[in-house]
């Protein structure tokens, strides 16, 4: 009898449609978000494969071809460098390779600083939200105070004082971005903690640890994922802002901010030096924002 029950079970069980599956289905239907994912993947692949894609090294200086236009440049220019598809910069380095290496740095800063903010934000926010009461009020008051600081100025001071340390850059930017993350995680934790299904689990004898891992975390992941996607472009922007001011990445390493800064200096004579890094950066930010918006709509369809 039991044996037949076991053999039957696989046959009659209907596969459920989980919220994740639903969200994925809606995301796949969102053309802007899907295009964003594809383009981002392409840019990331280009950045990773950069050394293989070009015969030039990112720091290979060539004083014969200073600030030369690519061969296909439609406007008459002082000099052209046919082998360099994006042209060359003011010391004759290949711009294509430099834009891709810039992508490596910018994307790395974006991802690492976002992870830093995620780590701090989730720990802080979840603690505040889970403990609640006075501790929560105090912890959130601290966030409120920090929130009202013009934080970028502190990052600038830090970068100046500690000599443009690369690691510090990640930490400093992450330390700015964690505030919003903490707010979101805390809000989510609080609202989920008050949901009836948590009480139901408690009434069913489920222990506090299992409640956090089985009920709270899976329900917080969605909104956090959305926010992470929207934080990455913010971080990339902050990094390039600092680099533009000369406070971020140092030569010969480069990032989009550095390239744009160089390009802006030369834009009258060599507009490609501004155009290509600016284009790559704008497209990347654009894609991240559309993917983030798409994710949000997919997770919470009532928003549209």
């Amino acid at each position: 009898m039991i044996a037949t029950g076991q053999t039957l079970k696989a046959v009659d069980e209907i596969k459920g449609r989980s919220l994740w599956v639903d969200a994925r289905r809606r995301l796949v239907k969102n053309r802007a978000a899907m295009a964003g994912i594809v383009i981002l993947a392409a840019i990331a692949a280009l950045a990773l494969l950069a050394p293989l894609l070009s015969p030039y090294a990112y720091d290979e200086v060539n004083y014969d071809i200073i600030a030369c236009a690519p061969g296909w440049w439609p406007v008459e220019t002082a000099c052209t460098a046919p082998g360099h598809i994006f042209g060359t910069d003011s010391v004759g380095r290949d711009l294509f390779v430099r834009v891709l290496f810039g992508a490596r740095v910018s994307l790395a800063v974006g991802l690492v600083a976002t992870l830093v903010s995620l780590l701090i934000g989730v720990l802080y926010g979840a603690t505040a939200g889970y403990l609640g009461g006075r501790v929560d009020a105090l912890m959130m008051r601290v966030v409120d105070i920090l929130y009202s600081l013009p934080f970028v100025f502190f990052v600038i001071i830090l970068m100046v004082l500690f000599d443009r340390n690369f690691i510090l850059l990640f930490v400093a930017i992450g330390a700015v971005e964690w505030l919003t993350m903490a707010r979101i995680v805390r809000g989510q934790t609080l609202s989920i903690k008050q949901k009836e299904f948590i009480e139901a689990a408690r009434a069913g004898g489920v222990g506090p640890f299992a409640i956090i891992t089985r009920h709270v975390i899976p329900n917080v992941v969605g909104p956090v994922m959305v926010y992470v996607t929207l934080t990455v472009p913010g971080v990339i922007l902050t990094e390039s802002f600092l680099s533009f001011l000369g406070l971020g990445i140092q030569e010969p390493l480069t990032s989009w901010g550095v390239l744009i800064s160089d390009g802006a200096d030369q834009m009258e004579t060599a507009p490609w030096m501004l155009l290509f890094p600016a284009l790559f950066m704008a497209v990347t930010l654009f894609c991240f924002n559309y993917v983030g918006d798409g994710l949000r709509d997919a997770m919470d369809p009532k928003d549209r």
Partner: peptide, 15 residues
């Protein structure tokens, strides 16, 4: 044991 008022809210939507 207990049964709650709102049947949907008392079940974890992701389970």
């Amino acid at each position: 044991q207990i049964v709650f008022q709102d049947p949907l809210a008392s079940l974890d939507p992701r389970m």
